[in-house]
């Protein structure tokens, strides 16, 4: 299966069980921070969270600020290490892996091949232009640089990133511009699982609509989407299913 044009997950591999329609399964996930610099203070992030995310669907995570939404996403991506519980992901070959227990190298493989993460913050690289930064994941997967830049250019155009910024340095961009570079970077490789942390936060309503369309296209391709948004209306519109966190616990 080409990484650039993913097939819907329910097709393709032999021996598919119904479990593959739920490629992401989070069970009893628990995370508490221990801040040694504050004398060992415990800061709970979330507690005993479980949910399933379907292929070709958008699962939204709602909740007030500080309810643990972003932490939950980061835990799935393994930026945060869960204290207990499991995050089971179905790989393309049909096998499963628990991201909580996986080795660093395995997680890096999965991040390269399967999971994308759109954060609010763009980490620029010195002297790398916006278009090259966004094209990097494609080039790392073996695509020719020229072709990768073309694909990025198409997506940049769709999110209406001004053309004169394409060869600019992202560190100088506005929040909304950086966010669009982030989005394009993650969407371009069409990962099977896409985690979105406030993907539209810095965007004007018309741009938001464009991003919603792009997300919809990803969903129609069979991508599993899990997203955090503070704009509950938008979240409800996008999501096929919404879970709600309150002080770290799932209440809905």
């Amino acid at each position: 299966m080409s990484v650039f044009t993913p097939q819907p997950i329910t097709q393709g591999a032999a021996g598919q069980s119904s479990a593959t329609a739920l490629p992401l399964r989070v069970r009893n996930l628990h995370k508490t921070f221990t801040l040694h610099v504050l004398g060992g203070k415990h800061v709970p992030a979330f507690h005993d969270v479980s949910f399933d995310a379907p292929a070709g669907g958008f699962l939204g995570i709602a909740g007030a600020s500080g309810s643990g939404k972003s932490s939950l996403l980061k835990c799935i991506f393994r930026t945060y290490l869960a204290d207990s519980g499991s995050v089971t992901w179905n790989l393309t070959d049909g096998s499963e892996i628990d991201l909580v227990q996986a080795t660093d190298d395995e997680v890096l493989d999965i991040r390269r091949d399967e999971i994308g993460y759109v954060s609010q913050f763009l980490r620029p690289m010195p002297r790398v232009t916006a278009i090259d930064l966004a094209a990097r994941p494609l080039v790392e997967r073996g695509m020719e640089r020229a072709e990768a830049r073309e694909r990025i250019a198409d997506l940049f155009a769709r999110v209406r990133l001004p053309r004169d910024l394409w060869d600019g340095l992202p560190i100088l961009f506005s929040g909304g511009e950086q966010q669009r570079v982030n989005l394009v970077r993650a969407l371009a490789v069409a990962p099977r699982l896409l985690l979105l942390d406030e993907p539209t936060a810095s965007l004007s309503p018309d741009l938001q609509a464009e991003v919603v369309t792009l997300i919809g296209e990803a969903r129609d391709r069979g991508t599993t989407l899990v997203g955090v948004m503070h704009d509950t209306d938008l979240l409800n519109r996008l999501s096929d299913q919404v879970i709600v966190l309150d002080q770290g616990r799932r209440v809905a």
Partner: peptide, 19 residues
Amino acid sequence: ESGLTDQILEDPRHPYTQL
């Protein structure tokens, strides 16, 4: 401590790493 770089920097566990 050892782990993924983003995890070390955003979720450091050992007191020294946090410092």
